[in-house]
Design a protein around this nucleic acid. Structure first.
Length: 320
DNA sequence: AAACAGTGCAACCGCTCTGAC
DNA sequence: TGTCAGAGCGGTTGCACTGTT
């Protein structure tokens, strides 16, 4: 249903506001206060609909509005609040003094949302979305073959574990099961459930005992990697992990969607001894911590949100 | 220099909510 | 209880600006 737009009436102006119109609106509200938006334009001498006046006032002319670029703290708050409230922009704006819901919504859609997508994070659920990552580099890897693809699939979805215990000699059955598994993945994502939970690591590792492997010719993981995997859920987060927790706080069950994948990536990259602590020692991090331009800070924040599949994807072999 | 594409943001649209009657 | 109007909200659009070819 819905009612006809109030601005459809003849003679009412639409589009950008002129400084003269702004002056009229501000002057009127300074005297009479906001409210009664339907009669306001007539009394203020404006050829606008009341709704247009209200939006102009609340989104632009209000004296307590803070204009200009969002600070890092504000951006962090927006992400945190969005993970709690979703697209309830007014609820988010209520926690950010001086910012309007419209401004926050625009900033989310034009900056934060794109950045999250770029880094493989679903901006709706705040969960990692491996299907959003650019996998072209992986697929073009010379190390990619059906066997490795299966192992990657195992990382992406533990249901694929069943494939490893099935008859891998028949490629048709494998392809069929992969297709079925893909459907299950889509279903899982549609229900906004993380595709991989940290606890599944233990299942993965216990089931991936070398004696159970379909392809036992693979080398065992290095001891350091095994130790690290064993510590995944027993050590306290590093300082840089804390930054991620700031962005992606644990849910009511105490699990953190982001860690599910970031831990996988860390595990994959163990032989290069990389960790997020190293991020904080980079020049860009130093720039951020010690001060720098907004662009430099944004670049650093973007890097923080970026987890990349290492070029040495064949290291997956260590865990299969 | 011109054409085109991409980006960011103000403003609008359409729907829902809320309170008065 | 139902209706109506005002207000609020989230999604979308239009356009100016900027960068690239």
């Amino acid at each position: 249903m819905g009612r006809s737009p109030c601005c459809d009436k003849e003679g009412l102006k639409k589009g950008p506001w002129t400084p003269e119109e702004d002056t009229k609106l501000v002057r009127y509200i300074q005297i009479h206060g906001p409210g009664n938006w339907r009669i306001l334009p007539k009394n203020a001498g404006l050829e606008r609909c009341g709704k247009s006046c209200r939006l102009r006032w609340t989104n632009y002319l209000r004296p307590d509005i803070k204009r200009g670029r969002f600070s890092f703290e504000e951006e962090e708050s927006i992400i945190q609040l969005h993970s709690l409230h979703g697209n309830k922009w007014s609820a988010i704006a209520a926690r950010l003094p001086g910012r309007t819901d419209n401004e926050i919504k625009n900033y989310w859609n034009t900056h934060i949302r794109k950045r999250l997508l770029r880094n493989g994070i679903d901006p709706v659920t705040h969960a990692p979305r491996l299907d959003l990552l650019d996998l072209s580099s992986i697929l073009s890897s010379p190390h990619l073959n059906l066997s490795n693809l299966l192992r990657l699939q195992t990382l992406l979805n533990p249901l694929a574990l069943t494939l490893l215990s099935s008859n891998v000699e028949n490629p048709n059955i494998l392809l069929q099961k992969l297709q079925e598994n893909q459907l299950l993945d889509s279903h899982t994502l549609n229900n906004q459930t993380p595709a991989f939970q940290p606890s599944q690591y233990e299942n993965l590792m216990s089931e991936q005992n070398p004696s159970n492997l379909a392809d036992s010719s693979l080398p065992n993981p290095p001891q350091s990697a095994q130790n690290n995997l064993g510590q995944l859920h027993t050590t306290s987060p590093s300082s840089s992990d804390q930054v991620f927790q700031n962005y992606y706080p644990t849910n009511e069950n105490g699990s953190n969607f982001f860690y599910g994948v970031s831990d996988q990536m860390k595990a994959v990259d163990l032989s290069e001894n990389s960790s997020f602590d190293s991020v904080l020692s980079t020049p860009s991090a130093s720039t951020f911590i010690n001060g720098g331009t907004e662009d430099e800070k944004e670049s650093f924040c973007s890097n923080l949100l970026r987890f990349e599949i290492p070029e040495s994807l064949d290291q997956l072999d260590y865990f299969m």
